[in-house]
Design a protein around this nucleic acid. Structure first.
Lengths: 189, 189
DNA sequence: GTAGTAGCCTAGCTCTCCTAGGCAAACGAT
DNA sequence: ATCGTTTGCCTAGGAGAGCTAGGCTACTAC
C-alpha cells in the first residue's frame, strides 16, 4: 500500500488552505484526513490534537504575514510605510480569512514569544520611528495602530459595515489618514 | 414528574452566563441541558439548533450593551460622551467575554436589522453630532471609532498586549484621547 | 538481509448535535 | 369536573467529531 507522505508541515498548509475555503471552525481532523486519503486516527502521529493543528496554522499565518509586511515595508518610511503595512495586513486578512481567524487564537506565552508575532511588533515599532515617539507613547501608539487595523478588518469580515452603503475601501483610506495625523501630533491630549 | 420550566429566554440567559464562565465555544446544548437537569433532546423544543442558541445569546448581549451604553451616555456630549461610550463598551466586553464573543457572530441581514445593533449605530452617530461631521466623513468616523473599540478590546482579551508591561488602562485612555483629537480635526488628509 | 522505526491501519470509546416518536402534566372549553 | 389539546419532557438512536490503544507493513540504516 502506497504511503500518503503526510508530514506535519504539509498537514498545516492544507489545513490553512482548507480554513480559507470553508472556515477555520470547519477544519476538522477527519476532514483533513479525507483530503489526504487517510484515516483520521493516522493524523495523530503527526499532530498532538485538534488544537495543536490550529496553533500550527496560526504560526504559519503569522510567519506568512510577517513576510508580506516586510516586503511591503522595504524602502518606505513615514506615512508611506504606515499605509504599506496596513494594506498588506488587510490584504492578507481578506485573501486568507481562515488563516487570519487562526491568528486570533490565544497562544500560550512561550509559543507566542517564539512566533513571528515578535516580527510584527518589531516592524510596527520600526514604522513609528518615523514619528519619533518616546516611551510609553510609542507603546500606546503601537496598540492603537494594531487595534485599528485588527478592528477594521475584523468588522469588515463579519459584516459589521454592511448596513451603510459607503465603500469600505474609502473608509479604510480615511482611517489611515486619521491614524497618520494623530501619530504626527502625538500626544493627542 | 415536575417540569423544569424551561423557556427560550431562560435558556438564553443561562447560556450567556455559561459562556462568560467557560467560553462560548464550550457552551453546548448538552451542557446547557445538564444545567437545567434535563435531557439535551428536550431543548430542541425551545431552540432550533445550536447556532440558534448562540444567535439568541448575541441578541441578548447586543440589547444589554445598548442599555448600558445608553445609560452611560445620558446627559453627556463631546469627548465626555465618547469616553463614556467607550468605557461602557470595554467594561461590558471584559465583564462578559462570552456574551461579547457571541456578539461577533455573523447575523443574517434581517436578524441584524431587527437587533439592538441599530441602537449602537444610532448612539455612535449621536456622539459624532458633537463633532459636526458631514457625510461621508461621519460614516468613516463611525467605522474608525468602532474599529478602535473592537480592536482594542479584542486584542486585550486574546492577550495581544501581554508582551509589553505598559498598563492597558493607560493605553486605552491615550487611544481615546487620540480618537477625540482626530475627530475634532477631521478630515485628517 | 535483518533490526528498527516510521507511517498507516482497525477497533472502539466518549461526546456532541439532532430527529422521531411516546407519554404525561397543564390548560381551556364545555 | 372532565375531556381533548397542547405543551414539555422523555427514550432511543444515528451521524460525525476527537482521541487512544494496539497491530501490521513499508522503508531505512547498518
Amino acid at each position: 500500500m502506497a504511503r500518503a507522505g503526510v508530514t506535519a508541515d504539509r498537514l498545516t498548509v492544507v489545513a490553512a488552505d482548507l480554513a480559507d475555503e470553508i472556515g477555520l471552525e470547519n477544519v476538522t481532523v477527519a476532514a483533513l484526513a479525507r483530503h489526504f486519503g487517510v484515516k483520521d486516527a493516522s493524523l495523530y502521529f503527526h499532530i498532538r490534537n485538534a488544537r495543536d493543528l490550529r496553533v500550527r496554522v496560526a504560526l504559519l499565518a503569522l510567519a506568512e504575514l510577517a513576510d508580506r509586511v516586510a516586503a511591503a515595508l522595504a524602502g518606505r518610511a513615514g506615512k508611506d510605510a504606515l499605509v504599506a503595512f496596513a494594506n498588506a495586513y488587510r490584504d492578507y486578512a481578506r485573501r486568507h480569512p481562515g488563516r487570519y481567524a487562526a491568528m486570533q487564537i490565544d497562544l500560550d506565552p512561550e509559543t507566542a514569544a517564539a512566533s513571528a508575532g515578535v516580527r510584527h511588533a518589531e516592524m510596527t515599532r520600526a514604522i513609528l520611528r518615523g514619528y519619533r515617539l518616546p516611551e510609553p507613547d510609542q507603546t500606546d501608539a503601537v496598540r492603537m495602530m494594531h487595534s485599528t487595523f485588527h478592528g477594521f478588518v475584523s468588522l469588515e469580515r463579519t459584516g459589521g459595515f454592511r448596513h451603510t452603503p459607503r465603500a469600505t475601501d474609502d473608509s479604510w483610506s480615511r482611517a489611515l489618514d486619521a491614524l497618520d495625523a494623530v501619530l504626527r501630533n502625538w500626544p493627542p491630549a
